[in-house]
Structure formats: structure tokens, C-alpha cells
Simulated scan of single mutants.
Amino acid sequence: MDKDRIEGIGKQVKGAVKDAAGKVTGDAALQAEGKTDKAEGKVQNAVGGAKDKVRDATD
């Protein structure tokens, strides 16, 4: 598993926590930051998945 996938999953989790905390506290900025982190994590996870596929294809 590529390190980008692991870091991406971590960002998604962190973003989900921030998003939920923003909803609970009514902090729109924190909620938006959480959504941004989740989106970044999804992209990073996809990049890691692509790297894994390339690595598997060359093996």
C-alpha cells in the first residue's frame, strides 16, 4: 500500500472530525476546513491507488 493512500485516509478522518465538530459548535469555518481536508484526502488516496496499480503492473 502506497504511503499516499495511508496519508489520504488520515486526512479524510481528520476532515470528518473537523466537519462534525464544526456542525456541533456552529463554526462554519471549521466545518469548511473539514470538508476541504476530506476532499484532499480523497484525492491523495486516489493518487496512491494509481501508484499501486502502476507498481503492480510493472511487477
Rank of each mutant, 00 (worst) to 15 (best):
G41W: 08
Q44H: 11
D59Y: 09
G22F: 01
K3F: 14
G10V: 10
A16Y: 03
I6F: 13
K53C: 04
A21T: 06
V54F: 04
D19T: 02
G10K: 14
G22S: 01
I6Y: 12
D52A: 09
A57E: 03
V17L: 13
G41D: 09
G34S: 00
V13S: 12
N45D: 15
G15S: 09
R5L: 11
V13A: 15
Q44K: 14
G34N: 01
I9K: 13
D37R: 02
D4G: 05
V24K: 05
A46K: 08
G15E: 02
D19H: 04
Q12A: 15
A16H: 05
D37G: 05
Q12C: 13
E7H: 13
G49T: 03
Q31P: 02
Q31H: 03
G10D: 13
T58L: 10
A39R: 12
A21C: 07
I6A: 14
I9W: 08
K14F: 10
D56W: 04
N45K: 13
K3Y: 15
E33N: 12
K35D: 03
L30P: 02
K35S: 00
Q12V: 14
K11W: 14
A57S: 03
R5Y: 07
A39M: 13
G48E: 09
Q12W: 11
D19R: 03
G49W: 02
T36L: 04
A29F: 06
G34C: 01
G8A: 13
A21V: 12
D27A: 01
E40S: 15
T36K: 07
R5S: 15
V47Q: 09
G48W: 09
G48N: 07
Q31C: 00
K14H: 11
M1K: 07
K11Y: 13
A46F: 05
K3W: 12
M1L: 12
A20V: 08
A20E: 08
D37I: 01
L30E: 05
D56H: 05
K11L: 15
G10W: 09
V43W: 09
I9A: 11
V24P: 02
K38S: 07
K53Y: 06
Q31F: 04
E33K: 09
K18G: 00
E33C: 00
G49M: 02
A39V: 09
V17M: 08
A21E: 14
K23I: 03
G8W: 06
D2A: 13
G15H: 01
A21P: 00
E33H: 06
A29R: 06
D52I: 00
